[in-house]
């Protein structure tokens, strides 16, 4: 029973990992571009949720969408004002630009919100479900289920809609897409918006159960990179499976070996997998 409880806890956390990592993988898949500021997008999503709850009130639906929307807009702005230009520069400029953006966002958050930890005031979402002896905290359950639904939604958007096809077309061959009347700039701005938006809503969902400070983005950013690499760069379903697997491994190794060993186990398995399958679980070789 205890084991079942640990597994459920790991999967619920893994679902959130999956959601915020899917944005990172989307940008890579679309543009071969690594976004080091992704963890900071998650962090900003958390603060947007806090501001909305404090100023406007409302439940997770309200602040979740507010965070998604605010970060979507931020993603588009970042693309239009920064990424579009550095894309023409050398690889190093591309890497350093988002690294600089990450520091800018983190220290701006320090300046505005201070380094103190904050947490969401009690929202309507609370309580614990008891399913056959397994306790599921409602906030984590809602967050986990919503995260999986949104990740699947993003996958369907990419594979089953016209917009998705256009996004993939630009990723496949920019010039050919242009000849077909697709505007790559718009599509890529949309990709940045979707990526940042999914990070934002993931942040809002996490904020329900975790206290945080402006430096939290560092931890999440690192986790997202591990998830994306494990799942295969560019693959949204890959990110989903990888997120769930990493959440599960962390929970189980913390339970069996002790919490200080969980990261060792995760990174050891991660290194081993890369050795066997460098393209990741679902990546194309």
């Amino acid at each position: 029973m205890l084991l079942a409880q640990v597994i459920v806890g790991g999967l619920l956390l893994g679902a959130i990992y999956a959601l915020f990592s899917s944005g990172l993988t989307l940008i890579w898949g679309m543009m071969n571009f690594i976004n080091f500021a992704h963890g900071e997008f998650v962090m900003l999503g958390m603060y947007v949720a806090l501001l909305v709850v404090v100023w406007l009130g409302g439940g997770p639906a309200t602040f979740g969408f507010a965070a998604a929307f605010a970060l979507f807009v931020l993603g588009v702005i970042v693309y239009a004002s920064l990424i579009r230009h550095v894309m023409r520069g050398p690889m190093l400029a591309q890497i350093l630009s988002t690294f600089g953006l990450a520091l800018l966002l983190r220290y701006t958050a320090f300046w505005i919100f201070s380094a103190n930890f904050v947490s969401l005031p009690q929202v309507s979402l609370s309580g614990t479900l008891n399913v056959g002896g397994i306790l599921m905290p409602v906030p984590q359950l809602v967050a986990g289920v919503a995260a999986i639904a949104l990740t699947l939604g993003l996958h369907l958007l990419l594979t089953r809609t016209t917009v998705g096809s256009q996004l993939l077309a630009v990723a496949e061959d920019r010039n050919a897409a242009m000849l077909m009347g697709i505007r790559p700039d718009r599509m890529q701005a949309l990709a940045w918006g979707l990526a940042a938006g999914s990070a934002g809503i993931a942040g809002a969902l996490m904020a329900v159960s975790y206290p945080w400070s402006p430096s939290v983005g560092e931890t999440f950013g690192l986790t997202a990179f591990v998830v994306v690499t494990l799942g295969g760069f560019g693959s949204v379903p890959g990110a989903m499976y990888a997120g769930l697997i990493i959440g599960l491994i962390q929970a189980l190794s913390a339970y069996w070996l002790g919490p200080i060993y969980k990261d060792i186990v995760v990174y050891a398995l991660f290194a081993a997998l890369l050795w066997l399958r460098p393209q990741g679980l679902m990546g194309k070789a």
Partner: peptide, 17 residues
């Protein structure tokens, strides 16, 4: 005795122990 890292995001397993 449960040593853990202060940057943990989930402590379910520890509380269950």
């Amino acid at each position: 005795r449960i040593p853990y890292s202060a940057s943990s995001t989930d402590v379910t397993a520890q509380v269950l122990q």
